[in-house]
C-alpha cells in the first residue's frame, strides 16, 4: 500500500478507484441522479474539502448544492435535519469525525429521536474521516462509533474497501434514517480496487461481509482493522496452518449478528478487533450478543484486541503503541487457537 497515488489504471470498463475516489463517486453519482441530494460542511465548496473529496463539486453543482458553512457543527447537522424534513437528502460533512462532538446534541437528541417522537424522520448522512495512523494527534484521529452506539435511532457504517465505501455511502444517502458514515482516512489513498466506471453500487446497511473464509477462529472487525486482521490471518495460515475467518461488519448498526453467530458456531472461537479504545467499546456489545446466542458453541473465551484506553497520542512511537498492530492480533489469535 503506497502513499503516492499512481497513474489511474483502466481496463475493460473498470477503473482503479481509491477509497477516497469511491466516496467522491458515490456522492457525485447520487447528486447527478437525485437533485435533492446536496452537501454542506466546512470548506467543502471553494476549497474542495480538507481531503479534496468534493474537489470540483462547486463548479459542477453550484453553491446551492455545495454549501460552505461557518465552523458550526451543530448548525450544520441541524440544517441537514431541517432540510431532510423538507424532503431533501443532505450530506453533512464533519471535516474530521472528531469534530462531531460539538454536534452531539443535534445528532443524539434531535436526529436520532425525531422519528420516534414525531413520526417525521431525519434521513441525513453525516460523514467524516475517522481513525489513526496518520500522526494527527488526539483531535484528528478518533473513532467515535461507541459514543453513538447506545443511541437508538442512528445507523452507523464503517467501510474497509473501495467498493463498500461507494456502496455503503450510496445506500446511506438513500436511507430514510440518520446514518453516520465513518470513512477511515488511513485508507483514503492506500486502498484501491478496480470498479466499474459510472456504475451504481449499493451495499445494504446491516449486512456484514466475509473478507476471508476460515474454519478455526472468527475475527470480527471493521474499518482499517480489516486489513490488519487479514494480514494476521494470512500469517497464521502460513506459519501455523490454521485458518482464520475475517468478518468485516461494514455496518456497526444495524449489527449483522446473524453472520457473526453463524461463523462463531462453526469456528468455536471469537476475536474482536477494533481501533477504538477497549473500555465501553463496541466489542463489548458483540461479546454480549454472542454470549446470548452462541455461548455453548464457544471453545474459548471471547477476546478483544483494541486500542489502549488513552487519548490518541501524537508521536509515531506512541501512536504505534496505542493502535492495535498485526502482531497483537496474531498473538491473540494464537492464544485463542491454543486454548
Amino acid at each position: 500500500m503506497s502513499e503516492d497515488p499512481p497513474a489511474t489504471i483502466t481496463y475493460d470498463g473498470l477503473r482503479e478507484t481509491t477509497y477516497l475516489e469511491a466516496i467522491r463517486d458515490a456522492m457525485r453519482e447520487e447528486m447527478l441522479r437525485d437533485d435533492t441530494v446536496f452537501i454542506l460542511g466546512e470548506d467543502v465548496g471553494a476549497y474542495g474539502g480538507a481531503f479534496k473529496i468534493t474537489e470540483g463539486f462547486l463548479a459542477e453543482f453550484g453553491p446551492e448544492r455545495v454549501i460552505d458553512t461557518p465552523i458550526s457543527e451543530a448548525a450544520i447537522v441541524g440544517a441537514a435535519i431541517g432540510a431532510a424534513h423538507m424532503g431533501m437528502r443532505p450530506i453533512a460533512e464533519m471535516q474530521f469525525i472528531d469534530f462531531i462532538a460539538p454536534a452531539f446534541d443535534m445528532i443524539v437528541n434531535f436526529a436520532a429521536k425525531s422519528r420516534y417522537r414525531t413520526g417525521i424522520g431525519a434521513g441525513i448522512v453525516i460523514r467524516g474521516p475517522c481513525g489513526g495512523g496518520s500522526r494527527s494527534g488526539p483531535f484528528h484521529s478518533q473513532n467515535v462509533e461507541s459514543f453513538f452506539a447506545n443511541v437508538p435511532g442512528l445507523k452507523m457504517v464503517a467501510p474497509a474497501t473501495a467498493s463498500d465505501a461507494k456502496g455503503l455511502l450510496t445506500a446511506a444517502i438513500r436511507d430514510p434514517d440518520p446514518v453516520l458514515y465513518f470513512e477511515h482516512k488511513f485508507l483514503y489513498r492506500r486502498v484501491k480496487e478496480m470498479l466499474p466506471v459510472g456504475e451504481e453500487i449499493v451495499v445494504p446497511l446491516g449486512a456484514a461481509r466475509t473478507h476471508r473464509p476460515g474454519t478455526d477462529l472468527t475475527i470480527v472487525t471493521y474499518g482499517a482493522m480489516v486489513w490488519k486482521s487479514a494480514e494476521a490471518a494470512d500469517l497464521v495460515s502460513l506459519e501455523d496452518g490454521r485458518e482464520i475467518e475475517v468478518i468485516d461488519l461494514r455496518s456497526i448498526r444495524p449489527l449483522d449478528i446473524d453472520t457473526i453467530v453463524e461463523s462463531v458456531r462453526r469456528t468455536g472461537r471469537l476475536l474482536i478487533v477494533h481501533e477504538a479504545p477497549k473500555f465501553g467499546g463496541f466489542a463489548g456489545e458483540i461479546t454480549a450478543q454472542v454470549c446470548e446466542q452462541a455461548f455453548e458453541w464457544l471453545d474459548a473465551p471471547i477476546r478483544r484486541v483494541t486500542a489502549i484506553d488513552t487519548p490518541v497520542p501524537y508521536a509515531p512511537t506512541l501512536e504505534d503503541y496505542y493502535l492495535p498492530q498485526t502482531e497483537d492480533i496474531v498473538a491473540a489469535a494464537r492464544w485463542l487457537l491454543a486454548y
Binding site: 451543530a74 441541524g78 440544517a79 435535519i81 431541517g82 424534513h85 431533501m88 434531535f110
Partner: peptide, 15 residues
C-alpha cells in the same frame, strides 16, 4: 436547537 433545524427548512425554501 430548533433554530438550527429550522435553518435547514429555510435553506430548502431558498434552494
Amino acid at each position: 436547537t430548533q433554530l438550527c433545524v429550522l435553518n435547514g427548512m429555510a435553506l430548502t425554501f431558498k434552494q
